[in-house]
Design a protein around this nucleic acid. Structure first.
Lengths: 108, 108
DNA sequence: CCTCTTTGCTACAATTATTGTAGCAGTACG
DNA sequence: CGTACTGCTACAATAATTGTAGCAAAGAGG
């Protein structure tokens, strides 16, 4: 009994079943992903400035995240150097803005 | 030139400088954190049902995330068993709802 | 009481991911 | 040439995650 609340049989994964949200959640659920988007929210930063802003995070993982975010179309490398958000990336960042206010109330 | 765009000297970190958003971004930027909140968005799930919904993720990390999310006050364990969102957790989840629509448009 | 089933949860080794430090090639300036 | 940036990478140490197996407790029948 207690039909294990799983009679739904989700079968959601990556970007398979049309659930793009899963892929997005997976990408954003990697260390520094959210932080990078957050730090770039206002103005572009050079890789080093970004590292400083991200509390001296390792350049290895920062570079990996930047590449992923770039492939996802959220971040771009300006021709004159410096990473910035794309139009899409700015949209995504807008989505997270309410988080700021929420965090202030949370703060525990 | 290129005065390294870092004349700001952020010095943000964890939950120190009043930036609660950093602590939140760090918590949510752990594997399965966002996914767990997402899967619980509608109704509570037992630990096993949650594991199924989360693509059979390891119970080790799932349990760790659930503990963290519980300590953060976003998730609670019902007296009759099963994990569900708290009022605060529901609020946080609401913040992420626009992400759903965004993901659909992104979809690459 | 015994058995079966489900609950939340844990142990443990193998595998990945992340960290920290150092350094590379390329470009621009003097 | 030398200096000072840029984006980016190598590499070993460390921490996080995975996958498999299983535990004790609680409830339902028998």
């Amino acid at each position: 009994m207690a039909k294990q609340a799983g009679s739904r049989d989700h079968r959601v994964r990556g970007s398979r079943t049309g659930r793009a949200i899963m892929a997005l959640l997976d990408l954003l659920g990697r260390r520094w992903s959210l932080r990078i988007l957050w730090e770039l929210r206002e103005s572009p930063l050079t890789s080093r400035a970004l590292r400083t802003a991200c509390d001296e995070a390792s350049p290895t993982v920062l570079q990996a995240r930047l590449t992923e975010l770039r492939e996802a179309g959220f971040v771009e490398l300006g021709d004159g150097g410096g990473y910035g958000l794309t139009a899409l990336g700015r949209e995504l960042c807008e989505t997270f803005m309410p988080l700021h206010r929420f965090a202030e109330r949370w703060k525990e």
